[in-house]
Amino acid sequence: MENSSKKKRIKLTSDVKQIILIVAAFTIMILVFSIGSEYFLKKDNIITILISAVPLGLIAIGECACLVTGVFDMSPGMVASLAGVIWATLITQFGMNTWLAFAIALFFGLFSGAIAGVSTAWFMMPAWMSTYALMQIWRGVIMIITGGKAINMSAYPEFKVLGQTKITNSITLPILLLIIIYVIVYFVFKYTKFGRSLFIVGGNIEAAKNAGLPVKSIQFFCFVLSGGMAALGGLVFASRSASANPIIGELYAMQAISATVVGGTKMGGGKANIAMTFIGVLIMVGMQNGLNMIRLPAFYQYIASGLILFIAVMLQTSRQN
């Protein structure tokens, strides 16, 4: 009895330490950038950061669900791009109703997730490999549909509703959507049967099987969730920018993985905190924004995001050891 309570206390402190570390990194980032640029902490800029965090934030939810069960999903970037392209093409080429086209594009995301899910759960393919292949296939499809050019949608007012509706003076619908989804997912992860079983599958898949959990279905649903979130992220972005950009998703998968890992999701699976994932997303997006604010050229972002990812993985691994 005493032994088990002691164990629990040690685990708790290590979790708390991790949260402190992430929040500290976040604070340091804010401090550095607000010293570097007086505009960084202005209200307008914070809103800008939040808006640009929306697609990445949504994708990070799906990625977090996949990582918790111990697999990577590499495809969300291209799923996001292709969903936007499908939405725009159905409207412009086929004259379809905006919201029907929206539903079809969203359904495509779920479908792509289902392919990845089936190949991982039932065909036992290594997830990152099959989703990588899937990503290449979607990339080709995007190029065939668009020829590499962005589709301009500024002539379609209904297209812009999702991304540009203002709730208050400065807060737009996507920001609200992001926050609502994060709150829902937070509770789903914490309190529902599905959410809790994710952690068990990631922590010890054999134990989960023995406990009678439908491991394969759970893995399958993780990918479906990831595909759906990716499509939603892509659709929100397309609507906000009033165009379907074929290459916008190029870096989403890796940024989302970085955000989740920076947010303390354990890479082998079994441990994650969706609130910290949100902080991770803010760190990634805030860093991009801040580097722009202090007028460093865009390619410093590559180095910064690479370094952040490297250090995050290093700290995580050293803690495990």
Binding site: M254, F299, Y300, Q301, Y302, I303, A304, S305, G306, L307, L309, F310, V313
Partner: peptide
């Protein structure tokens, strides 16, 4: 991550 750093 290394690839991103080299790219930068």
């Amino acid at each position: 991550a290394l690839q991103q750093i080299y790219r930068g």
